[in-house]
Amino acid sequence: MDRRDFLKWTGVVGASAISSEARAGGKIDPDGPEFYGVLVDTTRCIGCRSCEVACGTENSMRIPDVKNDGALEKFRETDEKQWTVVNKFDTSKGDVYVKRQCMHCWQPACASACLTNAMKKTEIGPVTWNGDKCMGCRFCMLSCPFEMPKYEYDSWNPKVQKCSMCYQRTSVGGTPACVESCPTDAIIFGHKRELMEIARVRIYNHPDDYVHKVYGEYEAGGTGWLYLSAVPFEELGFRTDLGTTPYPEFTKDFLYSVPLVLLGVPALLSGLNLMANGAEDEDESEVYGE
């Protein structure tokens, strides 16, 4: 009776875990719409920070005082009040300005980490956060290789803050506010496939002006935001040691083994128990040494 009972139990739990297999790793639906991305050409950026202002305005976040705050003088990270920042880098080819924000990974670590699906890869590409679901565990922050989700530590009801690729606009056919605000077309919006073509054409036409690599093509399994640069990406504060494996893959083996363990271990244990019992039959009342 006992054994049958727990087999039933494990069946239930195992089944839910098996169905999770199919979804593990955030598989991309080949028939779904193509994902959007943004191409940043750092050789065109003049460091005007219009994108910072546009982002703050559009998303009701902090609007920096671009003229007076002298923020380019020191390196900044995005934070819980500002989703995007432009930094100045002193490189072998002079000053280079680089905009940062969430990379909108193809297979985002943050979304696969999130146990409430608050972080989500939307069907058109932007990775968004849903405050009605999030329980504030910050596992997304721990997992994101680019350290992009930021947290409102000073609030009793904290939000996780990061760029949403202006989902409210892009989901209805618009372009992100930053892209629209850029006076030099240093950032352009489109499907990743098209953006990659543009990037390659630029490298091909001006082989001496660019390093022959598009950051984001493969990094961490490929990202929605892509970068062109005249200098090696290390000089621009990019991590180049992240590998090309999509981050959710790192947990795949573990997740796959769950249903196996849940079915296999109980079977093994009841076998062991039978052996330990020997020929004698189980005696229910015996368990607590009555």
Binding site: S16, A17, S19, S20, R23, A24, G25, G26, S112, A113, C114, L115, T116, N117, A118, G131, D132, K133, C134, M135, G136, C137, R138, F139, Y151, E152, S155, N157, P158, P248, T251, F254, L255, V258
Partner: peptide, 24 residues
């Protein structure tokens, strides 16, 4: 947890993050 009242979300099933290790 920053928003502990949402801890029920992954329990009652209105948002199962199946592919999350933390969920398991």
């Amino acid at each position: 947890l920053g928003r502990p009242w949402h801890v029920i979300n992954p329990i009652i099933g209105n948002s199962f993050g199946y592919n999350s290790v933390l969920f398991l």
